[in-house]
Simulated assay, not measured.
Amino acid sequence: MRRFLLLYATQQGQAKAIAEEICEQAVVHGFSADLHCISESDKCEK
């Protein structure tokens, strides 16, 4: 199964719902998605 990273950002929840639907459809097509909200990710310092 091929994997990919799916990042989303949302204020009212619509983007999260769409991202979750993409994840579900990805499985049907032989993919596995790692779903992450950008606002919940740790900031990295360079």
Rank of each mutant, 00 (worst) to 15 (best):
E24Y: 03
I22P: 00
E21S: 10
L35Y: 06
S32M: 12
L35R: 11
Q12H: 09
S32F: 01
C23G: 15
V28Q: 10
Y8D: 07
L7V: 15
K43E: 04
I22K: 00
C23Y: 02
E21R: 14
E21L: 09
K16H: 06
E21F: 00
A9H: 01
R3S: 09
I18E: 10
H29Q: 11
H36I: 12
M1G: 05
S41A: 15
E40G: 13
Q12G: 04
A17E: 14
G30Q: 07
E24F: 07
G30S: 02
H29K: 04
E40F: 09
I18F: 07
G13L: 04
A9W: 03
F4G: 14
I18Y: 06
F31W: 15
Y8I: 12
V27S: 12
L7A: 14
C37Y: 08
Q25F: 01
K43F: 10
G30A: 14
C44S: 08
Y8P: 06
Q11K: 07
Q14I: 03
F4D: 04
A19Q: 03
E20V: 05
S32E: 10
F4A: 14
S41E: 15
L6T: 08
G30Y: 08
I18C: 07
M1H: 01
I22R: 04
V27D: 05
K16E: 15
I38K: 01
A17W: 00
V27A: 14
V27C: 10
G13N: 04
E24V: 12
Q11F: 00
K46D: 13
T10S: 11
D34Q: 10
E21D: 06
D42Q: 02
L35P: 08
A9R: 00
S32W: 09
Q12P: 05
C23K: 14
S39M: 13
F31T: 00
Q25Y: 06
C44V: 10
F31L: 14
A33T: 11
H36R: 15
G13T: 11
Q12A: 05
D34C: 09
A17K: 08
A9E: 10
K46I: 15
E40T: 15
A17C: 11
